[in-house]
Design a protein around this nucleic acid. Structure first.
Lengths: 146, 146
DNA sequence: ACATAATGGTTTCAATTCGCAACTGATTGG
DNA sequence: CCAATCAGTTGCGAATTGAAACCATTATGT
């Protein structure tokens, strides 16, 4: 029952082993936007049903989704766990990157807004001192390397 | 030559169509950490070489990597474009999610640090008013829906 | 200079995964 | 009761993956 990680000590790689595929992340996206049922996920993502079955199972096994009885009686539903909801920053940065780089100028797309309908501001990495961080100003410290 | 998007008006889906697979994102991760050559990418990620060939081509076609002549003479190298470097927040949030949820308590992993060796702080989504945002306080506004 | 190793792929082939459609069996809804 | 919807499962051909072998160029060591 031991998982065989692609790169066991890299958190990026581990995260990708759990959710690093298109359908998994689209399911998470839709779960964040209120989808709960098999059919709803299927309609929103357009994924093949057998693949959806597989992804829901995986996400549940990974602890990102939980299956519980729907409030309205006897059917089951899938809801995000805390760990699943915690992917919010990942989905958000993907969305913002997509807005910046995956649309032609002037091409329209959906937007994430807060309760008042105000667009969510860009999420920018900053250091402890408030300075903006990027690939040039950071590096990976490997385990056991001080 | 038209791309056939999974969900054309969703920036998340478009982003995933471009980089939503394990190897692409691991290549980007390593490019951010200084990898430039085919062999270097292969060694760091452990991906099969034919797959790496494919991913480097795709990432280049998508405008995330560019192929240019290495400073040291005649060999070619792959470098991140601006769009590629701009994935930094995505990789960072994936990393931070992984650190929080993909390791057992006490299990060690690599860390991202700034120039001075200080760990990079958590990236948290906030609204225009500075309040923390999550799935409960945001929603997707679809195109053409005011 | 010459042998050896490393680089940057391509090719081959088996195994896995994907996507589509049809089918099943429960569960509402009228 | 009948029809529609839900939540999958099954079967199958097509596409993708992964491992290994092969190959033509560069470097490197002596």
């Amino acid at each position: 029952m031991e998982r065989d990680w692609t790169d066991p000590e890299c958190p990026v790689a581990r995260a990708l082993d759990l959710v690093g595929d298109r359908w998994s992340l689209l399911v998470v996206r839709d779960a964040m936007d209120g989808a709960r049922s098999f059919t709803e996920f299927q309609r929103r993502t357009g994924v093949a049903r057998n693949i959806l079955t597989d992804r829901l199972r995986r996400l549940t096994a990974a602890g990102l989704l939980a299956q519980r009885t729907a409030p309205s009686g006897r059917r089951q539903e899938y809801v995000l766990t805390d760990a699943g909801r915690d992917l919010f920053p990942v989905i958000l940065t993907l969305r913002q990157w997509g807005e910046r780089h995956a649309f032609a100028p002037g091409e329209s797309h959906s937007t994430l807004v807060d309760q008042h309908g105000v667009p969510v501001p860009e999420l920018t990495p900053t250091g402890a001192d408030g300075a903006r961080l990027d690939t040039a100003t950071t590096r990976v410290r490997k385990v056991g390397t001080d």
